[in-house]
Simulated scan of single mutants.
Amino acid sequence: MTITPPLPDLLAFAAVARHRSFSRAAAEIGVSRSALSHTVRMLEQRLDFRLLNRTTRSVALTEAGAELLSRLMPVLGDLETIFDDLAERQGEPSGLLRITTPESAARLLMRSVVPEFLKRYPQMRLDLAADGRFVDIVAQGFDAGIRLSEAVPLDMIAVPFGGTVRFVAVASPDYLSASPRPAVPDDLAVHRCIRQRLPSGTPYRWEFEREGQTRNVDVQGVLTLDHNGMMVEAAVAGMGIAYVPETVAKEDLDNGTLVLVLEEWCPPAPGLCLYFPGRRHVPAGLRAFIDVLRRELPN
C-alpha cells in the first residue's frame, strides 16, 4: 500500500533540509525545535527509512533524503503557485518572499526598495538572507537571488538594476604619505593590502583593467576581512589599501578620509541582477518586488 505522509510533515522535512538546521527551520515555521524534531522522526518512521543524519552540530541529508527533497521541491513549488494564483485573484500579493543576496546589496535594497515594497504591499513578508554564500536558490527554497551579473547562472532569468558598479582601490592620506603611491597594479606587491576572504574561504584576487589589459593580483597583507564595511574602516584607520565597491567607500571618499589609487585601472562593470528560475509562472510577490526594484533602482 502506498504511504502518503501528511503535507505538514513534508513541509517540515523540506525546511530542515533547506536550512540544514532544526533550529533555523523551527524559527521559519514557527514551532519549537523539539516539536519539529518529533515531526521529522515520525515521518521517518512512517516512511520506514532515514531522511537525515543528525549530530550535535550538524544535519545532513541521507541519500534517500536528498532524493526525496529533489522530487519534493517542484511539487511544493506547484502548490505555492496554486495558492499564489488564488491569493492574487483575491487582491494584493501576500505571503513570504525569500531572497538571498550579498550583504552590500542588501544594504542598498534597505535604503529604498525594501521600505517601499513593504509599504506598498503590507500583506507581504520579506526574508533577506545576506550571508554572502552563493547557493542553489531552487534547492535552498529561495524565490530569487541577487548577484553581480557575471555570477548569475545561465539557466536563470536575470533582471539588471542599479546601473553599473565600480570596484576601487582606496587608502587613507596618512597611509599614502608614508608609502609610495602605486602607479600600476603590480606595485601593490610592496604595499600592505587589506585582503578579502570570500564566502568559500579563499582570498579574493583583486581585478584591474585598463585599455584592454587585465591584471588579477593576489595581494599580500597582515589583515584579512570578509565585510566591505570593515575593510573601509580599516583603510580609514591607515592599515593599508582596500579594494571595495565604490558605493561602500563613497562617504569617506567625499570627506577626504580616503582617496582613490589606481583609479584608471578601475573601470565600471555590469552591475547587480535579481535572478530567478525560468518557469512559466512568476509568483505575484516576486513580480511586485521586481516592479518596485525597477522603479527605485533603474538600470
Results as ranks from 00 to 15, higher is better:
residue 261 V to Q: 05
residue 154 L to C: 00
residue 188 L to R: 04
residue 219 V to D: 03
residue 124 M to F: 00
residue 144 A to H: 00
residue 150 E to L: 15
residue 277 P to F: 02
residue 209 E to P: 02
residue 150 E to D: 15
residue 130 A to M: 07
residue 163 G to W: 05
residue 38 H to W: 11
residue 154 L to S: 04
residue 89 R to Y: 10
residue 145 G to E: 11
residue 101 T to R: 00
residue 30 G to E: 01
residue 273 C to N: 15
residue 279 R to V: 05
residue 101 T to A: 14
residue 26 A to R: 09
residue 164 T to S: 14
residue 72 L to W: 04
residue 1 M to N: 06
residue 241 I to R: 00
residue 45 Q to H: 15
residue 11 L to N: 09
residue 140 Q to A: 12
residue 72 L to P: 02
residue 153 P to T: 12
residue 69 L to C: 08
residue 150 E to G: 02
residue 243 Y to I: 13
residue 204 Y to E: 13
residue 216 N to D: 00
residue 76 L to D: 13
residue 48 D to I: 05
residue 217 V to C: 10
residue 157 I to F: 06
residue 187 D to G: 08
residue 53 N to F: 09
residue 35 A to K: 07
residue 2 T to P: 11
residue 92 E to A: 07
residue 103 E to L: 14
residue 73 M to D: 10
residue 29 I to E: 03
residue 192 R to M: 08
residue 159 V to L: 00
residue 75 V to F: 11
residue 251 E to A: 09
residue 223 L to C: 05
residue 216 N to F: 07
residue 182 P to K: 00
residue 222 V to S: 15
residue 75 V to G: 03
residue 145 G to R: 10
residue 117 F to V: 08
residue 111 R to L: 14
residue 185 P to A: 07
residue 97 L to M: 00
residue 157 I to E: 03
residue 263 E to Y: 01
residue 108 L to C: 07
residue 182 P to Y: 03
residue 185 P to Q: 04
residue 118 L to Y: 04
residue 149 S to A: 15
residue 29 I to D: 02
residue 63 E to G: 10
residue 129 A to D: 05
residue 159 V to C: 02
residue 38 H to L: 13
residue 33 R to W: 03
residue 259 V to A: 03
residue 149 S to L: 15
residue 129 A to W: 03
residue 211 E to G: 07
residue 252 D to S: 08
residue 18 R to G: 02
residue 165 V to G: 06
residue 12 A to C: 05
residue 194 I to G: 04
residue 61 L to A: 06
residue 12 A to T: 00
residue 272 L to F: 13
residue 62 T to P: 06
residue 221 G to L: 06
residue 248 V to M: 04
residue 237 A to C: 10
residue 159 V to Q: 07
residue 46 R to A: 12
residue 82 I to Q: 14
residue 46 R to C: 10
residue 33 R to T: 14
residue 194 I to P: 01
residue 28 E to W: 13
residue 223 L to V: 01
residue 229 G to P: 08
residue 292 V to M: 02
residue 91 G to F: 15
residue 23 S to M: 06
residue 195 R to L: 09
residue 127 D to S: 08
residue 247 T to Q: 10
residue 127 D to T: 01
residue 200 S to F: 12
residue 56 T to R: 12
residue 79 L to P: 09
residue 243 Y to C: 14
residue 191 H to W: 11
residue 89 R to C: 10
residue 131 D to I: 01
residue 239 M to N: 12
residue 238 G to S: 11
residue 149 S to P: 07
residue 20 R to T: 14
residue 290 I to P: 02
residue 213 Q to T: 08
residue 121 Y to V: 07
